[in-house]
Simulated assay, not measured.
Amino acid sequence: MRNATPLRRALPALLATTLLAGGLLVGQTAAAEPAAAAKTITCDIPKLRTEARKERDRAAQLKRLGAKDEARKALARSESLERRARQCADAEENNRPPLWK
């Protein structure tokens, strides 16, 4: 009979902890926004390309002035912008509408 006392204390504590954790999880899933309501990403391809061109020109100017490290960083930024513009263009070309529309 002596072994039942700690069990009587542990079970309600375990039950209360489980209920609290489950309530928190249910509350978080109800408050989270659904994936369909997430913000859509839009790309302005001409703007990305002009920014890339400006960075490339800036890199060339920095290289002429002798700042090779800054020129390398500007060239890397321009390549990154060009890659993003290419990805956006590919996504627009290969994007298919859903079957139910």
Rank of each mutant, 00 (worst) to 15 (best):
K63H: 14
L20W: 06
D57A: 09
K39I: 04
Q61A: 15
K54P: 02
R53T: 12
L19H: 00
L24V: 09
I45C: 00
E33S: 07
A32V: 01
K68H: 11
T18C: 11
A36I: 01
A16H: 10
L48K: 02
K54N: 13
L20E: 07
L15Y: 01
T40H: 06
L48R: 00
E51W: 11
R58T: 09
P46R: 05
A21T: 13
T18N: 07
A32R: 09
Q61E: 14
D57H: 09
I45P: 00
A67R: 15
A35S: 05
L24N: 03
L20S: 10
R53Q: 15
Q61G: 11
L24K: 02
T17H: 05
K47T: 08
R49D: 06
A59P: 03
R56G: 12
A37C: 02
R53H: 14
T40N: 10
R49H: 07
K68D: 12
K63A: 15
R49Y: 04
A60M: 08
R58I: 05
E51P: 03
A32W: 02
T50K: 11
L19C: 04
P46S: 05
L15I: 10
C43I: 04
A31C: 00
R64N: 09
A37P: 00
I45M: 00
A21M: 11
I41E: 11
V26A: 15
G66P: 11
L15Q: 04
Q28N: 06
L20Q: 05
G23V: 00
T29Y: 02
L25D: 07
K47N: 05
G22S: 09
T29L: 08
R53P: 03
D57M: 08
A67L: 11
L24R: 04
L62E: 10
D44Q: 02
A16G: 13
E51G: 05
E51H: 10
D44W: 00
P46L: 03
D57Y: 09
R64W: 02
G23W: 06
R53V: 08
T42F: 06
E51K: 13
K39Q: 13
R53S: 13
P34G: 10
K47E: 12
A60T: 09
E55D: 13
A67E: 14
T18S: 14
E33D: 06
L48F: 09
G66S: 09
L48M: 11
A36P: 00
K47I: 01
